[in-house]
């Protein structure tokens, strides 16, 4: 089964005329671990947000879990765990970690339904999976960058998603925390055979279980293939050195 199927997709932001991504043809099968790499401004986040329907595409057709994105976007989102690019959190924000993880289930539980004991069990399981169970009652503003990232990951996992979209999960993290998150993603993929799409501009942090890499540059896919082949190609070297991106 194709988890993602994009056919000639193009996305233009409202009020603008130049597409951020265009001619996107992408098929991702169930259980694949895929990395989308590219320099800053290549359109990686736009591509992720087009997949989960937050940004409507302006041309082509797109399917997630064999459902057309614009028609079934709310239903589709309930099956997609999304970890947003690192954002600033107010240190005094009035939220406990466990509540943030539970908020990931809000859509899946559905309107007019209360949170059940089973939902909380899923929350504890997800927090345990990322090693954050002891932080359940910790205010999110008191977490370190790495801890916060793990909570966001637990939040996405609490959705019990069929597809996990991760936007720059390693940004603003120190080396050892990056390694921890990387191991965590490998473990999740190994244990749950979940389809994972990770976006990164840093070539040195592509999880080992990731087998396929897509290179996005100036809004279009320029390479798509096995990780080893892509990462050793001279084209990658040119793109990333030209843009001055970490390698």
């Amino acid at each position: 089964m194709n988890v993602i199927d994009l056919q000639n997709v193009e996305t233009i932001y409202e009020g603008e005329s130049i597409p951020v991504i265009y001619n996107i043809n992408l098929t991702v099968k169930a259980g694949e671990f895929l990395a989308i790499i590219g320099p800053n401004g290549a359109g990686k986040t736009t591509l992720l947000e087009t997949i989960n329907g937050i940004l409507p595409y302006t041309a082509g057709r797109g399917f997630v879990l064999e459902k057309e994105i614009p028609i079934y976007k709310t239903a589709i989102r309930k099956e997609i765990g999304y970890v947003i690019q690192n954002f600033e959190i107010d240190p005094l924000a009035p939220f406990l970690s466990k509540d943030i993880v539970m908020s990931g289930r809000a859509g899946k539980i559905g309107m007019f339904r209360f949170v059940s004991k089973e939902d909380w069990e899923i929350v504890w399981y997800s927090m345990g999976l990322v090693g954050m169970i002891d932080f359940a009652h910790r205010p999110i503003g008191r977490l370190s960058g790495g801890e916060f990232q793990k909570i966001l990951l637990a939040r996405a996992l609490a959705q019990k998603p069929k597809l996990l979209l991760l936007d720059e999960p390693f940004s603003n993290l120190d080396f050892s925390t990056r390694r921890q998150i990387e191991k965590l993603l490998n473990r999740i993929h190994e244990k749950q055979q979940m389809t994972i799409v990770i976006v990164s501009h840093d070539l040195s942090f592509i999880p080992s279980r990731c087998s396929r890499v897509i290179v996005l540059d100036q809004g279009k896919i320029i390479m798509d293939g096995e990780k080893e082949k892509i990462l050793t190609s001279t084209m990658i070297d040119n793109i990333f050195h030209k843009k001055g991106v970490n390698q």
Binding site: I54, T74, R77, Y82, D99, I100, S103, A106, G107
Partner: peptide, 13 residues
């Protein structure tokens, strides 16, 4: 969910 982060809430359905 909305009070924490509107876009994340939207992405969760």
């Amino acid at each position: 969910a909305v009070m924490f982060h509107r876009k994340l809430a939207e992405s969760a359905g």
